[in-house]
């Protein structure tokens, strides 16, 4: 049985797809057979971030409708073994997703995979509800600003009331908080919520803090999950998050403002 992880946030543009790609890739690198499923029907992005947009033949909706089987629709990643992508349909809308259809696809994937990462669309409507409904764990992605945190709070409420686990009275979804686009300097200036502020409002266990980084945009545009950029701060922070997800202890990095060394202060580093 696979572990189903939904990457969700409520608000758009906070880094759900970047996180899905990074976490999914990280799990596969760690030897877990992983599939990343794009639930954002009509606004397909995951294939771009994963750099497999030219290889999409069949998609999630085709599989639900029985127009293709899973093996035809799954795209195997060329860089990492054990990693597959199930792309969304660009020509359909969220109504193409049905509880029964999604359940069947997830059950079929469950037989072959260790992890299923569900990349949720933004919002609290059908697409997002479908993505979180069958989840065992949730990565709640939030930017350090008030509107994003409030939307995350809303989605956490949904996780605990609208999911299969909630409806059937099973053990609740394991919640993880991932703060993205964090800038310690701006926190110190008072322009940004701190990790403590966010934790105070959401009260969810912190999985990781991804610093604001040039590497993320670069990775997106080149279709390479940022976690594979091992030299970058964002890549390292995602690797820490994946390690924590797999139960290892990691200190939090990139949450304090970097002190400039003596030499770099003189020579302007």
């Amino acid at each position: 049985m696979a572990r189903i992880i939904v990457v969700t946030s409520g608000k758009g543009g906070v880094g759900k797809t970047t996180t899905s790609a990074a976490v999914g890739t990280g799990l596969a690198v760690a030897g877990k057979k992983t599939v990343i499923v794009d639930f954002d029907i009509g606004l397909r992005n995951l294939d771009l971030i994963m750099g497999c947009e030219r290889r999409v033949v069949y998609d999630f909706v085709n599989v639900i409708n029985g127009e293709a089987n899973l093996n035809q629709a799954l795209i195997k990643d060329k860089r990492v073994d054990n990693l597959y992508i199930l792309p969304a349909s660009q020509t359909r809308d969220k109504d193409a997703l049905t509880v029964e259809g999604v359940e069947k696809v997830l059950n079929d994937l469950s037989e072959d995979f260790d992890y299923i990462v569900c990349d949720s669309p933004a919002g609290i409507e059908k697409g997002a509800m479908m993505a979180l409904y069958f989840a065992d764990e949730a990565i709640i992605t939030s930017n350090p600003e008030v509107s994003s945190v409030r939307d995350s709070d809303r989605i956490i409420g949904m996780l605990s009331s609208k999911s299969r686990r909630a409806e059937q009275g099973l053990e609740p979804i394991v919640e993880h908080l991932l703060v993205t686009r964090y800038s310690p300097k701006r926190v110190n200036n008072g322009d940004m919520l701190s990790v403590e502020d966010i934790n105070d409002i959401l009260a969810v266990k912190l999985l990781g803090v991804i610093p604001e980084s040039q590497a993320v945009l670069k990775a997106s545009n080149s279709g390479e999950p940022v976690i594979l950029d091992k030299e970058s701060d964002a890549g390292m922070a995602y690797q820490d998050a994946v390690d924590r997800l797999l139960g290892q202890e990691r200190d939090f990095r990139f949450i304090e403002e970097e002190k400039k060394g003596f030499l770099s202060r003189i020579f302007g580093g």
């Binding site: 409030r150 939307d151 409420g157 009260a203």
Partner: peptide
């Protein structure tokens, strides 16, 4: 916690929340 968007009504009762009530 009572999360943003959630509503609790204690009809003909007192209400005790053991946690925070979020904005919204």
């Amino acid at each position: 916690q009572v999360r943003s968007g959630q509503q609790i009504y204690a009809k003909q009762q007192n209400l005790v929340v053991m946690g925070s009530v979020s904005a919204g």
